[in-house]
């Protein structure tokens, strides 16, 4: 691990000021960052530990939603009874990821900012445009079974690994940040990640020193919430494909539907196409088939991950049927 300076400021302003300098990173749970530092993939000159900052609460908002502090652990969030009753999708998604030991450390902000688990990002003997800009992408012609099939570029086909963020995207969550100059802004989770394009090393819209303070959940939407994750083993594995569905029915028709996928793109992939196909449709398997086709229409495989496209379709169909109570 490269040597680094360590700082634990007690205020948000001081933390942001320190992190505005190049090669300085915030650290909270550290479950991803420390791992990457051991491998020499992350080499910060300084770490700004945010564990003293007052960002560990889950508070009710006047609108009937929840404001989740950036330092709230994944375990605390999944176990919060308000989340379990009103946003079961979020509890389900968090509990589908990692292990309890990791969730006890990993935080809300850190989960959003976790780096990809693309095998070639981790393998420092191989080219990777995300790790070394301009070096190439070994995943394109490599063992890309875990990689993305939609929204990516020929410079990078890395998939985002978060389950939590998939649920948050379906719930229309927003990221609340503060910049070193004190300016605050609110960014929808769906607009938080940058498409890889020619610059896959730039992963979010955050500016240097900009700190995630909290994630805002709007009031819970109408409808049944279901998260389904498909992976290589029963527990403690990243998604091949996951699906978050929020389905509201009226008589025999879909009133509104929200659909987000994990494991298929550089970000949690919200499918406007599937949602438009479902709105007003009859509650039948044929409607769900149509939504599944629409959702993956622009997907393309890269060889080893071709299977993800039909798998994503089937997983969406099954999850919709589950949410609708079709047996």
């Amino acid at each position: 691990m490269t040597p680094f300076r360590y700082e634990r400021p007690s205020g948000i302003a001081a933390a942001c000021a320190s992190a505005a300098e190049p090669a300085v990173k915030f650290i909270a749970g550290g479950t991803n960052l420390v791992d990457l530092m051991k491998l020499g993939i992350e080499t910060p000159a300084q770490l700004v530990d945010i564990s003293l900052l007052p960002l560990a609460g889950i508070d009710e908002t006047p609108e009937g939603g929840l404001r989740i502090g950036a330092r709230v652990t994944n375990s605390a969030l999944a176990a919060d009874m308000r989340v379990r009753r009103r946003y079961p999708l979020l509890s389900q998604a968090i509990l589908a990821g990692a292990s309890t030991q990791l969730r006890n450390k990993a935080t809300t902000g850190g989960n959003l900012l976790q780096r990809t688990r693309c095998a070639y990002f981790y393998d420092t003997t191989k080219p990777c445009n995300k790790r070394v800009p301009g070096s190439g992408c070994a995943a394109l012609g490599g063992l890309n079974r875990m990689n993305a099939v939609i929204g990516v570029s020929d410079n990078c086909i890395a998939a985002h690994g978060s389950d939590m963020a998939v649920a948050m995207t379906a719930l229309d969550a927003q990221v609340e940040t503060v910049a070193p100059d004190g300016a605050t802004r609110t960014i929808p989770v769906d607009a938080f990640y940058r498409a890889p394009g020619d610059t896959p090393h730039i992963e979010t819209v955050l500016a240097p020193g900009e700190l995630i303070r909290s994630v805002l959940l709007p009031p819970p939407p109408a409808g049944r919430q279901v998260y389904r994750k498909v992976r290589d083993r029963a527990s403690f594995a990243f998604a091949l494909v996951s699906v978050a569905v929020i389905l509201a029915l009226e008589n025999d028709r879909v009133r509104t539907a929200r659909v987000a996928f994990g494991g298929v793109s550089y970000k949690p992939w919200r499918s406007a196409e599937a949602e438009a196909t479902l709105a007003g449709a009859e509650v039948t398997r044929a409607s769900f088939d149509a939504a599944a086709l629409a959702a993956l229409r622009n997907a393309r495989g890269y060889g080893h991950n071709d299977f993800k496209i039909p798998l994503a379709r089937r997983t969406l169909r099954a999850t919709l049927a589950d949410a609708a109570g079709l047996t």
């Binding site: 360590y6 634990r8 650290i27 550290g30 479950t31 420390v34 791992d35 770490l47 530990d49 564990s51 375990s75 309890t100 030991q101 990791l102 006890n104 450390k105």
Partner: peptide, 18 residues
Amino acid sequence: TIIVNGQRINSCLALAVM
């Protein structure tokens, strides 16, 4: 795995200084 402040964590991914 160890128990820190009542919660189990992976001690390999925790910086002692934190």
